[in-house]
Amino acid sequence: MTNIQDIIDRLTASLEPIPNSVDTLTFGTPGTEVKGIAVTFMATQQVLEQSVQLGANLVITHEGIFYSHRDGTKPLYADDVVYESKKWYIERMGVAVYRYHDYWHRFQPDGIMEGLIQSLGWQEHVTENLPAATLVTLPPMKLEHVIGDIKKKLGIRFLRAVGDLSLACSRIGLLVGYRGAGENVIPLFSKYNLDLIIYGEGPEWETPEYVRDAVHAGKSNALIVLGHMESEQPGMRLLADRLGKWYPAIPVHYLPVDSVFRLA
C-alpha cells in the first residue's frame, strides 16, 4: 500500500528541508492510501470535481488553492461563499490536497523550468542554468516567428510582447512564474548579451518599460510575457509523467487548466 506520506517523502527526499515552505498537505491525512493522483498547476473547483470523477483522492497542485501564495491556517476570506463552498467540497468528498511548489523549483534543473524547456523542444539549445533563469541559444529567428512557435507548442492563444517583430533573436533567457521583476531580468540583457527574454509574470512597470526604452534607444532587445500559468503548467505535466513511472500501479492524471484571461 502506498499512502500520502510515501508520495510526499518521494517528492522531497533528494533535497534539504526548506524552512517555512508553502509545500504542505492542506487537506487530508498522511496515512491515507492513495487510490489515484491528479496533478495540476492550480486546483480550481473544476479540477477538484474532475479529480473526484476520476477516482483520484490525492490532488497535487503547484499553486495555493485559496487565492494567496500562503494560504495559512486561518481563512483569508471568512464567510466568503466561494471560499466556503470550495472548502466544503474538498472536505465532503474526502480529497487530499498537497501543495508542491518550493521543492519542485529546487530540483536541479528546476522541475518547472525543465518542463517548459521540454515542451518548447529546446533541450539541445540550453547553454546555462542560472539560479532563476535558463539561457538558450537558437538559430536566429525573427521575434514574430518565436512568438508563433511558442503559441503552437504551448497551445497558447495569445501572447504579449515588447520589441520589433522583425528582430532576429538567438540568445534567449527564460524565467518561469513570477520572476519577471526588473531586478531579476534587466541585468541579464547586458551580462549575457541577450536578444530576448521570456518570462511568466512580473510587474508591468519594470521590465516591459525597460525594454520599451531600450528599443527606443536602438538596442536589439525584446520581451515575451507568457503568463504565470502558461510558463509553469508544462512543469506539472512533467511531474505527472514522473509520478506515473514511479507508481505504475496508481492511476496518475495530469489535469491542465485553461488561461484565466480572455481577450475582450
Rank of each mutant, 00 (worst) to 15 (best):
108 Q>P: 00
108 Q>S: 00
99 R>K: 15
98 Y>H: 06
100 Y>E: 11
117 I>T: 01
115 G>W: 04
102 D>W: 02
108 Q>Y: 00
101 H>R: 09
93 M>G: 02
94 G>I: 03
90 I>T: 05
105 H>S: 13
97 V>A: 10
94 G>R: 02
93 M>A: 04
110 D>L: 04
97 V>W: 03
102 D>C: 04
91 E>Q: 12
98 Y>T: 14
100 Y>Q: 03
96 A>S: 11
118 Q>S: 15
108 Q>H: 00
117 I>K: 01
92 R>V: 08
102 D>L: 10
105 H>W: 04
93 M>W: 01
113 M>V: 11
92 R>N: 06
96 A>Y: 04
115 G>Y: 04
117 I>L: 05
102 D>T: 10
104 W>S: 13
109 P>Y: 08
94 G>P: 08
103 Y>L: 11
114 E>P: 11
97 V>Q: 04
97 V>P: 02
107 F>R: 09
116 L>M: 06
112 I>C: 15
109 P>R: 05
113 M>G: 12
103 Y>N: 14
118 Q>L: 14
113 M>I: 14
111 G>L: 07
108 Q>W: 00
91 E>H: 03
94 G>D: 07
96 A>V: 08
102 D>M: 05
90 I>R: 00
119 S>T: 01
119 S>M: 02
93 M>R: 03
105 H>E: 15
97 V>F: 05
92 R>S: 10
105 H>T: 13
93 M>K: 06
92 R>G: 04
99 R>P: 15
113 M>T: 13
90 I>M: 02
101 H>I: 12
112 I>D: 11
111 G>Q: 09
118 Q>R: 15
106 R>E: 08
108 Q>L: 03
103 Y>H: 15
104 W>N: 10
107 F>N: 03
119 S>C: 00
94 G>C: 04
106 R>G: 11
115 G>D: 07
108 Q>R: 00
92 R>M: 07
95 V>Q: 02
94 G>T: 07
106 R>F: 14
90 I>K: 00
113 M>S: 14
95 V>G: 01
105 H>A: 12
106 R>D: 13
115 G>T: 06
113 M>P: 03
98 Y>G: 14
104 W>I: 14
107 F>L: 14
102 D>Y: 06
107 F>H: 07
116 L>G: 11
91 E>T: 05
112 I>A: 14
101 H>A: 14
92 R>Q: 08
110 D>N: 12
105 H>L: 10
103 Y>K: 08
102 D>S: 06
107 F>Y: 10
97 V>N: 01
93 M>F: 02
90 I>N: 02
93 M>T: 05
98 Y>D: 13
111 G>A: 11
105 H>F: 03
107 F>C: 10
90 I>W: 01
99 R>T: 13
96 A>Q: 01
105 H>V: 13
104 W>Y: 04
108 Q>G: 02
98 Y>N: 06
100 Y>R: 04
91 E>M: 06
116 L>E: 03
94 G>K: 01
106 R>M: 10
119 S>L: 05
110 D>G: 09
98 Y>E: 12
99 R>H: 11
106 R>T: 14
96 A>W: 01
118 Q>F: 13
113 M>E: 13
116 L>N: 04
106 R>N: 15
119 S>N: 03
119 S>I: 00
117 I>S: 01
111 G>F: 09
108 Q>K: 00
92 R>P: 00
